[in-house]
Design a protein around this nucleic acid. Structure first.
Length: 328
DNA sequence: AAGTCACGCAACCGCTCGCGC
DNA sequence: GGCGCGAGCGGTTGCGTGACT
């Protein structure tokens, strides 16, 4: 037996509510209370389904509804609550006085979710998206596909923001190797990825995936990301001799590429780069805040600032130069 | 100025749950 | 225990609006 409709849908109005309908509904509820939603529309003189009346009241007309933009505190609470409760919008709304489940759901889908995706956070699991950290994708973005001379070092530098240092070092190694090995950059990707996987097996990258409130990755300032190679070449460090310009024609077979990963000269160079582009420009991180904590952020901040703020829960950014559209 | 596109929001739809008979 | 019903919830849709070309 089919389920009976919640109400007789014949001659019932649908679509946006008019001010007159709002007034009728508000007056009735303020006088008699909501009572039975099924019979309410008839008693209130509305040509609406009871369900529609309930939604209109709970999502829009209720006097205790807070309207306007979500504050940082509210946004932070939503993210934290969502990480615990999932898509239990009503449960989340219950923790945010004046906000409705529908409003929170809409805000999540139109703002927070997109922002998390842009930050490389899976909005469902609240964990960093491992597919975004895929070595091949990052390195293809960084190295480019045609000629190492066109390699996107800027992309690689940006990519550092979402890698752990070991990972970045390997990626940088691949890039530098590509400088001297014009033949097949994608092979290098495979080789370095293999090396990375080996390291991962040794537990060297286990901190790459952490609980949301533990995951913190330094952010890069635009200044550093936008600078070219010259800006990141540390004064106190030189490119290893075998990577110098005059050695571009060096036969790749002359160098054991895996051994290069252990080369002190290269390591020193990479560490210097690391210091130059990373540590000096790292955005100070605050400790994760609890729901009860008071935030120091003010509500009037611009949207861009909010993006940078990224909530204390997520300190991960995808650089502009890294095209993540394929993953979304 | 007109057309197109993207976005945000309100509302709807279908399903599940809980309660009373 | 089964059934009907009301209420609530989460996913989806459609419209209005502003930005962009």
């Amino acid at each position: 037996m089919g389920r009976a409709p919640c109400c007789d849908k014949n001659d019932l109005k649908k679509g946006p509510w008019t001010p007159e309908e709002d007034l009728l509904l508000t007056n009735y509820i303020q006088t008699y209370g909501p009572g039975n939603w099924r019979t309410l529309p008839k008693n209130a003189g509305l040509q609406r389904c009871g369900k529609s009346c309930r939604l209109r009241w709970t999502n829009y007309l209720r006097p205790d509804i807070k309207r306007g933009k979500f504050s940082f505190e509210e946004e932070e609470a939503i993210i934290q609550l969502h990480s615990v409760l999932g898509n239990k919008w009503s449960a989340i709304a219950a923790k945010l006085p004046g906000r409705t489940d529908n409003e929170i759901k809409n805000y999540w889908n139109t703002n927070i979710r997109k922002r998390l995706l842009r930050m490389g956070i899976d909005p469902v699991t609240h964990a960093p998206r491992l597919d975004l950290l895929d070595m091949s994708s990052i390195l293809r973005s960084a190295i480019g596909t045609v000629n190492p001379s066109f390699l996107n070092l800027q992309g690689l530098l940006g990519a550092q923001a979402l890698m752990n240092p070991e990972f970045f070092k390997l990626a940088a190694t691949a890039t530098l190797l590509s400088l001297k090995n014009h033949e097949n950059a994608s092979n290098l990707v495979s080789q370095v990825q293999q090396q990375f996987n080996n390291n991962a097996g040794n537990g060297q990258v286990q901190n790459q995936v952490a609980a949301p409130n533990q995951f913190q990755t330094p952010t890069l300032s635009n200044n550093n990301v936008n600078n070219g190679l010259s800006s990141i070449s540390p004064e106190n460090s030189s490119i290893p001799s075998y990577l110098g310009e005059n050695n571009y024609q060096l036969n790749a077979q002359q160098i054991n590429q895996v051994d290069l990963l252990l080369d002190p000269e290269l390591e020193h160079y990479l560490n210097s780069i690391n210091q130059n582009i990373g540590h000096e420009s790292v955005t100070p991180l605050s400790t994760p805040t609890s729901l009860n904590s008071s935030s120091t952020y003010v509500n009037s901040c611009a949207e861009e600032e909010r993006d940078t703020y990224c909530s204390d829960v997520f300190k991960l950014e995808i650089p502009e130069s890294l095209d993540i559209s394929d993953f979304l």
